[in-house]
Nucleic acid binder design. Structure first.
Length: 519
RNA sequence: CGCGGCGUGGAGCAGUGGUAGCUCGCCAGGCUCAUAACCUGGAGAUCAGUGGUUCAAAUCCACUCGUCGCAACCA
């Protein structure tokens, strides 16, 4: 038997100097849909997430709240994971870069790059601000009128030893790699950005070490230095799957199939990271997907503007699936989106309560009231065609193509337009509530068709709204176990083997609404 | 000319080469199984502007205007 294809994906790792906001969650959601989809379609999936902890900012923040940095990071990681869990993000592992294992593997990687001759010692000279305790770029100083933009004090000229990574040595190989792998950078607009960047400005060697920091990872070949945070952060993608201490796992999962990242860090992932891989003698990742940002009524989400919306606030006021639906449907993953409570309520009522939820309720009630939950003589019945112009197989293939291209909003749009809307229209046309008075057998057939649509919707929604999809599916005695259901079963396994039955709990012939309408 | 995004009916958005689509709102009607939900029809857009490519452009190219973001530790 051929082994199942494997699928390794990651999200960007987050800075734990503040809690995640809805924009951070947007990335995890997009990645989660992909992971769930691949899993259900038979891939062996490894989905990695994590926190980026070895930064000066984190150490400062920990000092501010009077905590040991490691304790602070562990507590923040706990909070992050609590949110991801509440959103049903199905990650398989969570890396904290301050964990000893990551540090050791990271040291092995940088040592390897050093041994391969891509790291050299040199002097870094620049403007240093004693207040910030860091170097400022020429430009930042200039724009601030010759002083530090934060402290408004003149910087001093300072020179110090450091280690450089020979990024420039990989320019041609990277350009070749982009050409050989046209899909490496997604979406296309991001690719153009990187290409023009490299072709116009070229790649320069970068300083990958820092001095004077207690918090961070020591450079193995010179313990006076710590590793530049980006160099260390990107390495989670390999240390998370066994680089340095589990050769079998690493051989199995690397290279990554997709790194999901925000559009702002495309450069690190498309230039620096594959160059690091080449320098260490491993394959570069197969794809980098730079998703868009979520804005708040057009404004950027930021702490200084004080407009952060806590994911938990939405989850507790509504639920995880409503949260997932909003961002997946409203915000195109490759582009930017917008959040507002008004729009959230609007979409929730229109699509989830009035459409999906209400369809479920009316079907359940019709079967419950008129047939006591059992549709006799429906065993082996082929579902009727309720569409006028599109068939389910086509719909499934379209949705599949959209999911694979990370066009989640379009996938959901299709499901509503081609599965749910036709079902409501079909009910209207057949009027089972009237028909049942004259022809019970025919009505059972109509209801069977409607249930079949709910089944199709449940399967198609499985990666998007895992809980709701399961609730709908398990409300009936469909022969196939929910855990095994995949997209093609929508049309290839439509036949019901025994008579159709409602298995959900009913009270007075009614079910609990999936999404209670909000006023 | 640093780079990039965006500009589509009253509002908010999708669509990116082939009769302009969705949600909300508005008007009229139907239904009453359903979460005052559902269905049908209607009003309303020279798809920012100009020029070009094409049998055909909201969709590709050039320029203009408006707007927002990024510029190497803010997803």
């Amino acid at each position: 038997m051929a082994e199942a294809p494997r699928w390794y994906q990651t999200t960007a790792i987050d800075y734990p100097n503040s809690r995640p906001h809805i924009g951070t969650a947007f990335e995890k959601l997009g990645a989660d849909v992909q992971a769930r989809y691949r899993r259900q379609e038979g891939y062996q999936v490894f989905f990695l997430m994590g926190n980026d902890e070895n930064t000066v900012k984190v150490a400062k923040k920990a000092a501010e709240v009077g905590q040991d940095p490691k304790a602070y990071c562990d507590e923040m990681a706990r909070q992050f994971r609590a949110i991801w869990d509440a959103l049903d993000i199905s990650y398989d592992a969570f890396v904290q870069t301050s964990d000893e294992r990551h540090k050791q593997c990271c040291r092995k990687f940088i040592q390897k790059v050093y041994d391969n001759g891509y790291i050299y010692k040199a002097n870094y000279e620049g403007w240093y601000c004693n207040g910030c305790e860091e170097f400022k770029t020429e430009k930042a100083i200039q724009e601030a009128g010759g002083v530090c933009p934060n402290h408004k004090t003149p910087p001093v000229r300072r020179s110090e030893e450091c280690y450089y990574f020979k990024l420039s040595a990989f320019q041609d190989r990277l350009l070749q790699y982009y050409e050989d792998n046209p899909d490496f950078i997604q979406p296309e607009s991001r690719r153009n950005e990187i290409l023009s960047l490299i072709q116009n400005d070229g790649l320069h060697d970068i300083n990958i070490t820092r001095t004077g920091e207690e918090w961070g990872i020591r450079v193995p070949f010179d313990e006076r230095f710590t590793i530049y945070v980006w160099f260390d952060a990107l390495l989670t993608y390999v240390t998370g799957v066994g680089y340095g201490d589990d050769a079998d796992a690493f051989a199995k999962w690397w290279p990554a199939d997709t790194h999901f990242i925000g559009k702002d860090i495309t450069r690190f992932h498309c230039a620096l990271w594959p160059a690091m891989c080449l320098a260490a003698g491993i394959e570069p990742p197969r794809k980098v997907f730079g998703h868009g940002f979520v804005y708040l009524k057009g404004e950027k989400i930021s702490k200084t503007l004080g407009n952060i919306v806590e994911p938990m606030e939405i989850i507790t006021q509504f639920n995880a699936d409503a949260f997932r639906y909003y961002f997946l449907r409203e915000c195109p993953f490759p582009g930017d989106g917008d959040f507002s409570w008004e729009r959230f309520e609007q979409l929730y009522n229109a699509d989830l309560a009035n459409n999906l939820g209400n369809l479920y309720s009316r079907v359940m009630t019709l079967v419950g009231k008129n047939y006591l939950g059992r549709l006799q003589e429906t065993a082996g019945r082929e579902p009727g065609v309720i569409y006028t112009d599109v068939d389910l197989e086509t719909t499934v293939r379209q949705v599949q193509a959209h999911v694979e291209a990370c066009q989640y909003n379009q996938a959901l749009q299709k499901i509503w337009a081609q599965v749910l809307d036709p079902a409501n229209q079909y009910a209207e046309r057949k009027e089972p509530w009237k028909l049942v008075k004259s022809d019970r057998a025919a009505t059972a057939g109509v209801l069977c068709d409607l249930v079949e649509q709910l089944r199709a919707a449940a399967i198609l929604l499985k990666p998007f709204l895992p809980r709701t999809a399961e609730t709908i599916y398990k409300s009936f005695n469909f022969p196939q176990p929910w855990e095994e259901v995949r997209y093609e079963d929508v049309w290839s396994r439509a036949r019901q083997t025994e008579e159709l039955r409602v298995t959900a709990a009913l009270e007075d012939g009614k079910v609990k609404p999936l999404f209670p309408r909000i006023a």
